[in-house]
Design a protein around this nucleic acid. Sequence first.
DNA 1: CCTACACCGGGTTTTACTTCA
DNA 2: CCTGAAGTAAAACCCGGTGTA
Length: 240
Amino acid sequence: MEEEDDEVCNTTLDLGIGLNKFMPKRDHDRKNKRVFFLDLSIPLHSSNHAIEGSGSGFGSGSSSLKVNFEDDKQASKDSVSNGSKEDEDRNYGRKKLRLSKEQIFLLEDTFKQHTTLNTVQKQTLAERLNLKPRQVEVWFQNRRARTKLKQTEVDYEFLKKHFQRLSEENRRLNKELVELQSAVKMEQTPSTPLPFFIQVPKAAATLTMCPSCEKVSKSRGGDGGKAGGGSGHTGGGPYT
DNA sequence: CCTACACCGGGTTTTACTTCA
DNA sequence: CCTGAAGTAAAACCCGGTGTA
């Protein structure tokens, strides 16, 4: 609604060639309206503004906040045209406005209080910032997008670390599992020293298992159940 | 139900500015 | 120091979806 007022009733006189920066292309395209402009806008950097008050009284309608754009050179340069020939020469087409520190301060302050604005709040804030409601609206949209992106990055980092912890835990548990399986295997091969004491039945002592092929066979009396060394199976050298 | 409108999120384009070779 | 290419942040825009009167 306020957009319509902004654009249809816009009194901007634009001498540039191409799209008027005060007429969002979106609405122009969509509604195909013919709009005439006579720019009577007040320059942002008129004189000696300053943020008076924190802006916390936003929306109350009794705010005394004023904005100083003077010490922000870029804002002065790029904000709403002051009607000079220089600006007119540069302002045709899409021109990106650089918001001043003071404007951003108030916008951020308002954003902290509420991340979305109703029509009245938007209008009020736009007036206090000497911006168009559409600009305030766009700023809030972009600000929400930035917040969401930042939150996504935070979430990603958290999940990444969580994944690393779980991977580490998984590795540790796998290692433990292998060790336990190995211990169980050793339990079945009494010829090798066990990591813990197990009383082996005498009958079992007569059995030997090749460590490589895991073939269990009855040992001959003379060898005394010697199965270690890994070479017993292949013959090896004569024991002395 | 249909329509017009406002608003929003997501994505893209454009521009101002910074960094660096 | 100057300059131009590359990178970045953010303003502006587009489009589709949704809620509401």
